[in-house]
Each structure stands twice: as C-alpha cells, then as structure tokens.
Design a protein around this nucleic acid. Structure first.
Lengths: 187, 187
DNA sequence: CGATTTTTTGAATCATATCAACGTACGTGG
DNA sequence: CCACGTACGTTGATATGATTCAAAAAATCG
C-alpha cells in the first residue's frame, strides 16, 4: 500500500489522518491474464492503482478491436468517461497479464473529496493531468504521421513495446498491423 | 458579469461572499476581430469567459495553420496546456470577431482554489469537463472518417458552421479545404 | 464595381487499407 | 521431447481515399 501513498504524495502532501482515511477505502484485488476489469455497457464504479501488472483499454468497432490506452505498474487508471459521468462505458478494460491492484470506489472517492479539501485538490490535479495526457495524445493524431507517432512511442515508452504485442500497438497508433510492420522495416 | 456567475453556478453553488471574492478577480476586456489573446511561445496566464464573441485556437506547422478548437459566447476558455503547466504555449488564440470577455489570472484563480474549497471543487469540475471534451474529440479522430466527423459537427454544433469559414472547419476536422468541399458535395 | 479571399473542380500522386499468402514463434498434448 | 495447431508477424499486389497542384468560379469587402 505504501506505493499508493507515494503516488498520492506526488500530488498533495497528506497528513497521517488523511492517509488513514484514504487507505481505509482501498481494496486489494488480483486479476488473471485477460480478465476484464470493465466491460462495454457497464458503469465504471472504481478507479484503480496498479501495484504490479498491465492493462489495456479497447473497444470493438465492426468486429475489430481498437486499442486506446495502456497502463502499467505504478499507474492509476479508470474509465474516466464512465467513472465521472456514471454512464455506460464504451470500453473493455483488460489485464494483459496477471496483475495486482488497489481499488477505490467512486462513492468513497467522492466522500474523500467532500470531507478533505486536500483530496478535493487531489481530484483536481488528477483531472488536470488526465486532460494533459489526452491533449498530448490528440496532438499526435492531429500533427503527426503514423511513422512519427511510432517514433515518439519508441522514445517515450519503449517499455510498452516489449510488453505488448505489435498488433495492439498498431491499433493504438491508429494503423493496421501490416502498416506498422512496414513502418518498422523502413526504420 | 451576471452571466459569469450563472456559468459558475452550473458547477458549484456559491455564497454571496464567495462570489464577491470571485468577481473581484475578474477583469473586463474587449478584443478586436483577429486580435490575439495568446501567441505561440507565450505562457498563458489567464483564463477567460466569453460574454460575446468567438475565438479559435490554431498552430502553425510547416507554414500551414492547423485549427484545433473554437469557442463562442458563453464558453470558458484557456490554453490549459500552457495555463496549467505555465510553460510556453504551442498555440495562437485569436478572436474571430470583435469580442467581450472577462479575464481571470492563474495567480488569482490559484488563490481562490486555496482559500475556498468550493472553488477547488470548481477547478476539479472544470478539469473533468475539459477531459471529457478532449476525450470525445479524440474519439472522433480514432473512430470516425472525415465524413463522419463532419456529419457529427453538423448535428452537434451547426452554429459553428455559420460563424466560421469553411477552410477553418476543414482544418479542425483534419482535412484539406478541397476535401471538405468534396465531402459536402457528396451529402 | 474591382480586388482579394474563399470555395469548387479536375487530374495526378501518395500513403494506408485491404486481401491473400507465407513465415515464424510459442505452447500444449501426445 | 517432438509435432502440431494457433496466434502473430511479414510480404506482395491491388484498391481506396485524401493530398497536391493548378485553375476557375463564387463570395466578400472596401
């Protein structure tokens, strides 16, 4: 659980009392490889912190899987679209390998927001960070070619390339597996 | 100024005292058509609420303008990327016609966040909303064809089509003006 | 009205998608 | 431990859709 506190402390300093309130809400869970955290159509009621493991977001369009995000050890994730609005998710969220996580429910998190200004602030900082991440990802689609996106991925996140099959990376980059294969040959 | 309060009240209920603190920070400003609120390379130090007018975000890549966003009367805007991180902006933000706005500085807003939990919450809700907007826009690039994006724009935001020249809309949709012209002919 | 900007149209070009086939790696059961 | 099956990756040929370049038509502005 210490790793969760370390993560939180990157955003706000928490007193021991605050942390006690927070940790109290955390629930440990393990996922098997390929197990789903969330299904399309379900409402996402939890956020989770990955102690060890890897997850992906994907949706199914015309029978094809389209991958939209990856998360790894040390990341915090939720389907925010669904989590924030409490509306049905458009995504599947799946463990890519067996994983250990701590869950916190929307209800408990909202309670923490309301009872501790410090956690309200945490919520703001999370949301701002999410926005920045999204913004950057959108930029790569607007301003970069598939080749540029791949190059950027190699620089920023080469860990990802080792952990994830190439056809998922292709999908994440918005191209077909054949195309990614050709991009790689060109380099 | 009432319209700003109305806007804020959509997110949090404010007491008269809180509102007094908020309004105190607002600064009125008018923009001429084509005047810039922000230049590439500048740090965005303000957010603004549009009382009357229209703005666009764009960047210049290889000598071409790429439009990334539009905002109209009743919208709240900032270059959040730059505003949140206080790093140089990648964008130009320009009035599309003469406009009236209320400004609030990053410094003052941060102060409000720190002094009033209610405004901290406002900040969270803003950021969450921003994220949702970004998320949807990214989705349209990932899952829709240019034709689909145009169709969605027509449904959601037909006002935009009347206010904005077509070549800017093309850029916003990620296609060349010639292509948008052809898409429109097909429909 | 004339000048400039914006939109449309046409033809050639380029990049990715698609379809199909082949190669390779991996792991499971015999 | 081998053999086979399945999933993954590569390669080639063709198709599709947007871009590019050029020019004409239409709309806007002084």
């Amino acid at each position: 659980m210490q790793e969760v506190r370390t993560f939180v402390e990157k955003f706000v300093k928490t007193s021991d009392e605050e942390w006690a309130a927070f940790r109290n809400k955390l629930q440990f869970k393990e996922f098997d490889k390929d197990e789903l955290f969330l299904k399309e159509g379900e409402v996402c009621k939890h956020a989770l912190f990955i102690t060890e493991g890897a997850f992906r977001f994907y949706k199914i369009v015309d029978g094809n899987e389209l991958v939209t995000a990856f998360f790894f050890t040390g990341d915090y994730l939720s389907d925010y679209q669904s989590f924030l609005t409490q509306s049905p998710s458009n995504y599947y969220v799946q463990a890519l390998r067996s994983s250990k996580v701590y869950l916190i429910s929307k209800k408990d998190l909202t309670e923490l927001y309301n009872n501790y200004p410090n956690f309200e602030k945490l919520g703001r900082l999370f949301a701002e960070r999410l926005f920045l991440t999204m913004n950057r990802r959108l930029d790569t689609f607007l301003y970069e070619t598939p080749e540029g996106r791949y190059a950027e991925l190699v620089n920023r996140n080469s860990k990802l390339l080792q952990e994830v099959p190439q056809y998922m990376i292709a999908s994440y980059l918005g191209v077909k597996p054949e195309t990614l294969s050709r991009i790689r040959k060109r380099i």
